[in-house]
Nucleic acid binder design. Structure first.
Lengths: 127, 127, 127, 127
DNA sequence: GTGGTCTAGACCACT
DNA sequence: GTGGTCTAGACCACC
């Protein structure tokens, strides 16, 4: 269910965070569902437990999951809402990137077309 | 002419690269124009010469400027074209970011609107 | 009679300890009264027997209950007094927390008001 | 300037966070001031760099400091305000603790007196 | 020199 | 079994 590219420039722990967010947004993981244990994921993905731990800690601090010692990790109540809030922050990154590209000579139409294509490729995932 | 934000998350050498690209695209620096020397920039911006060097090396490798030992650095002949090529590569980053945001529940319209706004804010800079 | 929040950050065994203390202080459980058996509680609360055991052990060591092999656990003679003693220890925790908040810029009035409100909300429970 | 008790029940990284917050609130560290480097602190406190890193990461995520690779860590612009916000969250902990103590038979007056004493002991630190 | 990521392995508290 | 903290040591990107 969780796919990690160990050679990506994106840190592994960040990929894990995003994969779990994706599973929650996609409805695969629902509120109060228990997540796979850190050790379990660690084995399944052949990734060091500390790295999984780091990802879970970030999700916990963001209020997307909550962890309890001895019991496990669970999807928090307003997880989807929290994820959307975090994403809204990332819109600023999109703004910055678009501005840079535009200022460097890429036409607005090209940018809009690029975004549209990115969305359409994944349209099936949203419904 | 070159503005650097030392507190930005973006690496300084990358900011320098982008600033110079901006000056070339904007026509301030034309083909075969000489760039300010590394020492000069280093003092003017109070930035470590190695950092400037790294930026120049990147521009050189991309074929946007060329360096001649002892005489300095100059804008390459097809600089603008080369810059556009590099930008096209960055479109892939835009694609990835847009896809992630879309998959996490941000509507396509919001994304397009964000890009459009980013472009319009800088419209005057392009003409 | 005993309510446990399995999703609370507070360890379950600690919740059990506090719930039993509450029942004793509130007079529901009187001196020499027999406590429900570990197995019984385990089933009723769907909690691991080891966890109940741990809570009982703690109460036993504090002299609040006493266990007799084969017959069960009973409220000790000076249970209420012992509970008050334990609580006094927790006042140190209150001191530390208050000090930290105060040193970080929260006004003394705000702290006092917070404590007062916490007490008043539960006033009915005390009488 | 930073004091750590390695035998405290409170995690080391959390102590570091609180010590730095204290230095900022106390005015010893001002906005945009550079913090001691991770390795430096690591040596000075004989604590593993990863532990310092964890503390800094938490402060960074909370917007109290910002870290940039190769340059160092700096106090963020609204650091004091951010710290106060975090403290306000901790008032909930105070509420919970006060309620528990009150429900277990500690008189409201004793609680208020305890808080007052904790504040007065540190009064000089605030002015 | 700086911070950031990752691995490996130990130990602890909780269920 | 679960999660949480800490150490040690490696490697990378940036200045």
């Amino acid at each position: 269910m969780i796919l990690i590219d160990k050679f990506s420039a994106k840190p592994i722990y960040e990929q894990i965070v995003e994969e779990i967010e994706r599973l929650i947004v996609g409805g695969v993981l629902k509120e109060k569902d228990q997540l796979p244990s850190i050790r379990e994921l660690s084995v399944a993905l052949s990734i060091n437990p500390n790295t999984i731990q780091k990802a879970f800690t970030e999700l916990d601090q963001a209020g997307i999951i909550f962890s309890t010692r001895g019991r496990g990790c669970f999807v928090a109540e307003n997880a989807k809402e929290k994820i959307r809030q975090r994403m809204t922050l990332k819109l600023q990154v999109l703004t910055d990137l678009a501005r840079e590209l535009f200022c460097s000579g890429i036409e607005e139409e090209v940018l809009l077309e690029t975004v549209k294509k990115a969305c359409d490729e994944n349209h099936f995932q949203k419904g």
